[in-house]
Design a protein around this nucleic acid. Structure first.
Length: 269
DNA sequence: ATGGTTGGTAGCCAA
């Protein structure tokens, strides 16, 4: 079972890349962020033609998340609980049935939070992370495989940036931001990519500006966080870096994991 | 050195 996350920075501007990538990489479940369209504007037909079920949580112009899945959805939940006044579309959860039982997958787009001195921005980010922590804690009690995939807008450690010093005043690398992510991990989540490599220079985002891609001036901010039950199934994790070199690329690239979801021999016998 | 690039939208904002 291949599960992917990709901030595509506008699904309508990226539809050719998205179709190419789905054919090429063939994820079973793909979590998308920044679709930047209302649900009605999502290019549903093109994706369904490739054999995917499509569930979206869209918004006009900004944000917006989706899950594409070759498996049927048993359940879909939209929006991160904890604040009824929050109208930003940043969270969608799908539940699937595998040979080993239920699998929960979330596509999340965590607030950017910049600039940090704007009271509408950075506090919203930290509040959203606190709500995510509460939600994740509840879900862990189910003791099911759960994948929290998405654009976290968090650089976890200095190793996750080419030039860490350039980010010290940025919301993505603030001590409080990193601490909030560590609190979520401390609940029992595994950072799938970091669990499979200690390498530096593993990035998922390169800014469009300043020749960042050509200089490999990247950061690692797209993550798949695994519940203990999901971590037990983890076989591999990787960054599909080549996608950044495509024509008209997103500034983010897909991150993919392989989970062992086939029936065990004992269960099959 | 506070630079410059893209998407969505509409006469700038978010990233």
């Amino acid at each position: 079972m291949k599960v992917a996350t990709w901030n595509i920075n506008g699904v309508r501007a990226r539809i050719d890349n998205l179709v190419h990538w789905l054919n090429d990489s063939a994820p079973d479940i793909a979590c998308l962020q920044e679709i930047k369209t209302v649900d009605e504007g999502f290019p549903r037909a093109e994706i369904e033609a490739l054999g995917y079920n499509v569930e979206t949580h869209g918004q006009k112009g900004f944000n917006g998340v989706a899950i594409l899945s070759k498996l049927p959805f048993d359940e879909v939940n939209r929006g991160l609980p904890g604040d009824d006044t929050d109208e930003q579309a940043r969270f969608i959860e799908g539940v699937f049935s595998t040979a080993r039982g239920a699998l929960r997958v979330v596509s999340l787009y965590l607030p950017n939070g910049n600039p940090i001195d704007d009271e509408r921005k950075y506090p919203y980010k930290l509040g959203w992370m606190a709500r995510l922590e509460s939600w994740a804690k509840e879900r862990l009690a189910l003791e099911e495989p759960l994948v929290l995939a998405g654009d976290y807008n968090v650089i976890p450690e200095p190793i996750d940036a080419k030039n860490p010093s350039a980010w010290v005043n940025d919301a993505l690398f603030q001590p409080a931001t990193r601490q909030a992510l560590r609190r979520i991990e401390a609940l029992g989540f595994t950072d799938a990519l970091r669990a499979t490599t200690e390498d530096s220079d593993v990035y998922t985002f390169w800014d469009y500006q300043g020749g960042a891609w050509q200089k490999n001036n990247g950061i690692r901010i797209d993550h798949l966080m695994l519940s203990p039950e999901a971590a037990n199934l983890l076989q591999s994790a990787s960054v599909e870096k080549h996608v950044r070199a495509w024509e008209k690329p997103s500034d983010h690239v897909p991150v993919v994991i392989q989970l062992e979801t086939e029936a065990t021999e004992a269960a099959a016998a």
